[in-house]
Write a protein that binds this DNA or RNA. Structure first.
Lengths: 211, 211
DNA sequence: CTGTGTTCAAAACATACGTTTCAAACATAC
DNA sequence: GTATGTTTGAAACGTATGTTTTGAACACAG
């Protein structure tokens, strides 16, 4: 990030600020001044603030969903059994490991996802669903094979619940870490939390369906 | 809401708009014009927009946490066993039933909570934790008695995961309903979702803790 | 009535925002 | 070296926001 081009400096900075303070609360002036570029550069290179936001997500999600697709390919090729642990484990290791050189990057990833999902009118959510829905659906099919006794409709919602648990928790990690520290005098990392998440989600996903 | 006072008309309208579009995206002018009151009324009665937001939450959460406390009292008095189903069931029935005359109110409740939690800098989250942390802690103690084999620290995080699943899902219900309708051609209500949520959360909360 | 404190209404204020403009600087090809 | 297309810089534009001001309308006690 030291001497990257204007476009990348904008993306790097916007990514951090968006994750930190949200989309509406982050002004282009805040981004450009912190990035050391001119204010007009955003509209010149991206067209609008909205387009900047989408560009930030694209840079994040395109490699992620590609890697996820590759991992699913590998799983099918090697005949790895479709267990909830295996399927969810792939996602977590990927989310935590997309940028191993920068551990904070994972937190930014989740916070950004949370921002996108909780975005009120939800056009970003629709955008994500449209561009990355295919990989997501594939993931869900593997999960379905892992828990065949759970009806598809039920599984759909359980995946949503899981998404909520993951994104919500990771996206609010800062405050939660402070509370956890106050109540238990313990520090936790994103990796810690995901390690705790896995059994919780597996338990929820394969729970018995009432009558 | 027909001919209530200015203060209540502002609160009623702000509540709906905040839930619909978020805090930053809802202007005082939008609130006051829809409420049919003068723009200056907000600053006159509440002091600032920030104070308005807190007032909206207070009107919501004070009765809710009081009712929750009462239900927990009742549970202790009648000796109802501390099972995950019982404890979580209380919360859900309460959240869905605080205003039986207005079923949409429950959705607003969850959407507002989601907005508060995903609020970037999290001062609202801190505010909530400060004002309603006591009832929350009591709830957690009951849960702890329900699953004594889960260490407190682990349970703390599982409650956070559950919160995430609930708030995140309910707060994004609109979009999710559309997806669910497209993929399964089925309508779902908030009550439907919570019915599906309960076994998921119970399964997650009482899952085995790895080594 | 009269006076006093409260509430409302209309307008103005100050500020911050996204966006646009336009000229200068730069790079690259001819 | 000049010309051309691209990128940057500084400033301005138009708009929307939260807030403040000022005075009128009102309620009600003395």
């Amino acid at each position: 990030m030291a001497q990257a081009g204007t476009v990348d400096r904008i993306l790097d900075t916007a990514e951090v600020l968006f994750a930190q303070k949200g989309f509406a609360e982050t002004s282009l002036r805040a981004i450009t001044s912190k990035a050391g570029v001119n204010l007009a550069a955003v509209n010149y290179h991206f067209g609008s603030k909205e387009a900047l936001i989408q560009a930030v997500f694209e840079r994040f999600l395109t490699p992620f969903s590609a890697a996820l697709g590759a991992k699913l390919d590998e799983m099918e090729a090697t005949g790895t059994p479709d267990t909830p642990e295996n399927v969810l484990g792939i996602v977590f290791r990927l989310a935590l490991g997309t940028h191993p050189e920068d551990p904070q990057r994972a937190a930014i990833f989740f916070r950004l996802s949370g921002q996108a999902y909780s975005q009120p009118q939800g056009h970003l959510r629709d955008y994500l669903h449209k561009h990355y829905g295919a990989v997501f659906k594939r993931l869900q099919e593997h999960l379905q094979r892992a828990v065949p006794s759970v009806p598809p409709m039920e599984l759909f919602w359980r995946v949503q619940f899981s998404l909520g648990a993951v994104i919500f928790t990771l996206s609010g990690m800062q405050s939660l870490q402070a509370i956890s520290k106050a109540d238990f005098n313990l520090d936790v990392s994103a990796a810690d939390i995901t390690r705790r998440l896995l059994p919780f989600l597996v338990g929820g996903i394969q729970a018995d369906v009432p009558e």
